[in-house]
Computed example of a mutant assay.
Amino acid sequence: MEALIFSTGVVALAEIGDKTQLLAFILAARFKKPLPIIAGIFCATVVNHGLAGALGAWITSMVTPDTLRWVLGLSFLGMAVWTLIPDKIEEEETKIAGQLGVFGATLVTFFLAEMGDKTQIATVALAAKFSDPIWVVVGTTLGMLVADIPAVFVGDRFAAKIPLKLVHGIAAAMFAVMGVLALLNVGNLL
């Protein structure tokens, strides 16, 4: 249960202001069809984070606990820094929409935008940290939806009222604490 709750919270915070949340704003403004957009976000996230969770679980089986501790600690510290860097959406990611319909465009653009994104990398690290990658993937998917569904329904008006620096600071602090604890081998981290 810890994996679910922690993964949901940290990814929801990390997703605020992320390029995939910006993509949700753009798709919502362009198509004004929230349900196929949300369905596309959900499906793309399940597949993308499912692959990331499997990679995280595989990593834990391939490296020693001491090496894993260093990899996780440094990864979480890197995520803390990356979370503080604002994302920008690339125009090419929204051009696919014309040929695939709303659901297809959302599915493809979200999947591609999430490749190598901080929430995907966080999913790999969280799956390596916790013993149950399925709960991590469920949590990171919920975190994405918690952040992106309001973006789809409320759009840019909502984004202007969110203190992004504060939210990113909180998410960065959570990643940094996890990194330091992993490096110090404090608690039941592995």
Rank of each mutant, 00 (worst) to 15 (best):
I16A: 09
G17I: 13
G17Q: 15
G17E: 15
T20I: 14
T20W: 03
L23N: 06
L23D: 00
A24Q: 12
F25I: 12
F25Y: 11
I26N: 00
I26S: 01
L27M: 10
R30K: 13
F31T: 13
F31M: 12
K33E: 07
L35F: 12
I37N: 03
I37Y: 02
I38G: 03
I38T: 08
I38C: 05
A39R: 06
A39L: 03
G40M: 05
G40T: 05
I41S: 01
F42A: 09
C43A: 10
A44P: 07
V47F: 03
N48S: 04
H49D: 08
G50V: 07
G50R: 05
G50A: 10
A52H: 00
A52P: 01
G53V: 08
G53A: 05
A54M: 02
L55I: 01
W58S: 14
I59D: 11
I59A: 15
I59G: 07
T60H: 14
T60E: 12
V63S: 12
T64Y: 07
T67Y: 03
R69G: 06
G73F: 10
G73E: 11
L74E: 01
L74Q: 01
S75D: 03
L77T: 01
L77Y: 07
G78F: 07
M79W: 14
A80C: 12
A80I: 07
V81F: 06
T83K: 04
L84A: 15
I85G: 06
E90Q: 15
E90H: 11
E92V: 15
E93T: 12
K95D: 07
A97Y: 04
A97D: 12
Q99F: 06
Q99P: 02
F103Y: 15
G104Q: 03
A105N: 05
L107V: 13
T109K: 12
T109F: 08
A113N: 10
E114S: 13
M115T: 03
G116W: 02
K118D: 11
K118S: 09
T119V: 09
Q120C: 15
I121L: 10
A122P: 05
T123Y: 00
A125G: 01
A127R: 00
K129G: 04
K129V: 04
K129A: 07
F130T: 02
S131M: 04
S131I: 06
P133M: 10
I134V: 09
W135C: 01
W135K: 00
V138W: 07
T140I: 09
T140H: 04
T141I: 08
L142G: 11
G143N: 04
M144Q: 04
V146K: 08
V146S: 04
D148N: 07
I149L: 06
A151I: 15
V152A: 05
V154L: 15
V154G: 15
D156C: 10
R157E: 14
R157P: 02
F158G: 13
F158Q: 05
A159L: 15
A159C: 11
P163K: 06
